[in-house]
């Protein structure tokens, strides 16, 4: 009896657009101070770590980016879109170096004016380094989320992560994903 009630609620609720929807979407845009794109910053370590640049740059639906270099060294951070949506970062919780993380596990969080937002590892690997400069420079998350604002450096095995890497978005797919979301 109860179950049926719930199911019916869902059906109607999702097929009837209520007045609340446009409001929050507007808000999300209004608070954005985005740089306008989600390209990796070519002047910073996540790109310059190897002379040829990263072998692969990918994006998750939770708005993380990863930049994987030839030797498996992989930088992780949050996208420009995510940083802009969260507002001014006040505290970055970083992962513990020399720990193993599984794809989907939390590797830290970004606390902005008042929200704490989890950051997930899009792939499995070992944490080589946490970007401790963010401890005194949480603002890098906003000023350069895809460069100076990198959060963690992992060592990953590309072959072992093939499924995860394949599932992640390319830049083009990510931008499309953002558009479909608006």
């Amino acid at each position: 009896m109860l179950n049926r009630t719930i199911t019916r609620t869902v059906y109607r609720a999702t097929t009837t657009r209520s007045a609340i929807a446009p409001t929050y979407r507007l808000f999300l845009r209004a608070q954005s101070t985005s740089h306008g794109n989600n390209h990796l910053n070519k002047d910073e370590l996540p790109f310059k770590f190897s002379s040829t640049g990263p072998k692969l740059v990918k994006y998750s639906k939770d708005h993380e980016w990863l930049a994987m270099h030839n030797d498996g060294t992989t930088f992780i951070g949050i996208t420009d879109y995510a940083a802009a949506a969260l507002g001014d970062a006040t505290y970055i919780e970083l992962p513990e170096p020399n720990t193993v993380v599984e794809a989907g596990e939390s590797i830290g969080s970004v606390e902005s004016v008042k929200s704490a937002s989890e950051v997930y590892a899009p792939v499995s690997g070992a944490v080589l380094e946490a970007h401790t400069e963010l401890e005194s420079h949480a603002d890098y998350i906003n000023s350069d989320p895809m460069g100076k604002g990198w959060i963690a450096k992992l060592m990953i095995n590309e072959a072992a992560n093939k499924d995860y890497l394949d599932e992640l978005f390319t830049l083009e797919q990510y931008e499309k994903f953002l558009k479909s979301d608006e």
């Binding site: 109860l2 009630t5 019916r8 609620t9 109607r12 609720a13 999702t14 009837t16 209520s18 609340i20």
Partner: peptide, 12 residues
Amino acid sequence: NDFRGGNTSEIP
């Protein structure tokens, strides 16, 4: 009221 979304049955 506001999250009913036009449904006649009540949110439990």
